[in-house]
């Protein structure tokens, strides 16, 4: 739950007074709140946890981490996809 995924900001807008963004996580685009990273701009890479960017990170770091998450199969879970129920 505490992993966090890096993604790239593609678009910034405001919803209900909150700064929001479309963030691309290696092909999957999710809405992300930017309230905690006032310095982020379009093209920035951010570390995202449960729909909130917590930090701006550099591109190289972002790509490496995405790679690792994909390898250990943790990307789906961090993006809120459902786990399988027990049989």
């Amino acid at each position: 739950m505490c992993l966090g995924i890096p993604g790239k900001i593609e678009e910034i807008y405001e919803t209900d007074g909150l700064p929001m963004a479309k963030v691309n996580f290696g092909g999957i685009v999710k809405e992300t709140c930017l309230a905690y990273v006032p310095e982020a701009e379009i093209g920035s890479y951010v570390l995202v946890h449960v729909g909130f960017a917590l930090n701006v990170i550099d591109e190289q770091e972002a790509l490496e981490t995405l790679d690792l998450l994909r390898e250990i199969d943790a990307l789906g879970e961090e993006l809120g996809q459902a786990p399988a129920p027990a049989e």
Partner: peptide, 20 residues
């Protein structure tokens, strides 16, 4: 639920519910 990592998101949801 969660540790400090998740708290900013959960706190914001409650704050926004009140504001909205």
């Amino acid at each position: 639920v969660g540790f400090e990592t998740t708290a900013p998101a959960n706190a914001m949801a409650v704050q926004q519910a009140k504001i909205q």
